[in-house]
Amino acid sequence: MKIVALIKQVPDTYGERKLSATGVIVRGAKESVIDEISERALEIALSHKDKDKSTQVVALSMGPESVTEALRKALSLGADSAVHVCDDQLVGADLVTTARVLAAALKKEGFDLIVTGNQSSDGQGGTLPAMLAEHLSLPAATALDSLEINGTTLRAQRSTDYASATVHTTLPAVVSVTERAPEARFPNFRGIMSAKRKPLSALSLDDLDIDLGSDRSGGRSVVLTSTQRPARTAGIKITDEGQAAAQLAEFLSAGRLI
């Protein structure tokens, strides 16, 4: 069984996140981390490997140079190898391009199961798992809270905006997990040391035989403007000495909020 976990490096949600005037994330390598939801996706693959040692886990990511850090972390957590899709032409790539490139990389790498997070914390697109499945003619079992793999059968609990449902399908497949899926493990010393010796390969668009200029029939999604809203500032702050509720009611009333 070969499981490919898709990893996305994102600006840390605990830090300040910035967009450029063209809507591209300003990446300072220091505040970039593996998205928490990607770690959960990787955890699904690693916990399967815990049960079946013959499982091969590959961490795959697309992004700039700094992404090697995220992939090294994935290796230290227990992935067997890592693939970094990296090409200057991919800066600011839209979802259609991203899906096309990742699908090509996945085809080249080979897989039985592709695991992703349901939605990244930066772009929050949430469409990529279905897009990959469509490119690869696979089922997409998305938004899974939990899943169980038995041979080539996958059974899972899926959670939508309106309902929770049991679903099942057959491998190969694309799955995406929600933040209800188990948290990632921590890297241990042995993992960190062995990560340095594990293979981390790089793929360019040439390696994938993709010419971005050749097919733009669907157009390109472009950012027209990007403006930072003025930061919120603290207003009135009082300490309750028995009168706070009345003052608050007065504030709400003055603002016609009650």
Partner: peptide, 24 residues
């Protein structure tokens, strides 16, 4: 609608008909 199923529909449709996406 930007819902769980809506995003799946949008993603597959974009690839199938070769259209682009605007998200959320």
């Amino acid at each position: 609608a930007n819902s769980v199923d809506g995003r799946d529909v949008a993603g597959r449709l974009a690839v199938r008909v070769g259209m682009n996406l605007i998200i959320d």
